[in-house]
């Protein structure tokens, strides 16, 4: 890392994160978070998801505002393309998580970032989701992430930022490891 006159500022409050880590190590129950989204069908393959509340530190929280996400399928799937496809939103989640991690790790290592840009690609054989070939999986068979980073650091230090970010990334973990998923159905009020 380079020693410069101005303090490193990537806009991440690392001190607060380190304090939270120390506090939560002694109070593990407060570390249990539950994240939520709701989703409603609009028409065709178009649906809208809403994120507004979550649970953590022993209590309910609300985001500063409600976030909505449109999802649909593209015209080549004979759909109306009203939003990104769900698998693209998965790529968005991975990118956002890794980039946030890069900023936090860089702050902790006192590396000033100037620009961080990522390009993501996920390869998929759609014979899987079409049910046309039982040997093909539905999901991505490979995800490629390319980062272009300009920072006050050596190439090795920048590589280490990206590697450490993957190591501590929730979405990277969710994608690379199996996760138990339960889906229940209840009758709707009419």
């Amino acid at each position: 890392m380079t020693i410069t006159g101005t303090p490193v500022d990537n806009g991440v409050n690392v001190q607060a994160l380190l304090e939270a880590r120390a506090a939560l190590s002694d109070a593990p129950e407060a570390a249990q978070f539950t994240w939520r989204a709701t989703n409603e069908w609009i028409n065709g393959t178009h649906s809208r998801s809403v994120v507004e509340s979550y649970f953590g530190l022993g209590e309910e929280h609300r985001h500063r505002r409600t976030f909505t996400f449109e999802a649909d399928h593209p015209e080549v799937f004979a759909a109306e393309d009203q939003g990104a496809t769900p698998v693209e939103i998965v790529l968005v989640g991975l990118a956002s998580c890794l980039t946030a991690g890069i900023a936090a790790v860089a702050q902790n290592r006192e590396i000033q970032l100037r620009s961080v840009k990522a390009t993501l690609e996920g390869d998929m054989n759609i014979l899987g989701i079409l049910g046309a070939d039982p040997d093909v999986r539905n999901g991505f068979n490979r995800i490629r992430v390319k980062y272009e980073i300009d920072a006050d650091a050596t190439p090795e230090e920048i590589e280490a930022l990206v590697a450490q970010s993957q190591k501590r990334s929730a979405v990277f973990d969710i994608i690379t490891n199996p996760t138990q998923v339960t889906v229940e159905v209840t009758p709707a009020d009419r």
């Binding site: 590589e159 280490a160 590697a163 993957q166 190591k167 990277f172 973990d173 690379t176 490891n177």
Partner: peptide
């Protein structure tokens, strides 16, 4: 896990 490339990268670095 699909994290093998990152694990070896971390160790190499």
């Amino acid at each position: 896990s699909g994290s093998l490339p990152n694990k070896v990268k971390l160790a190499d670095l």
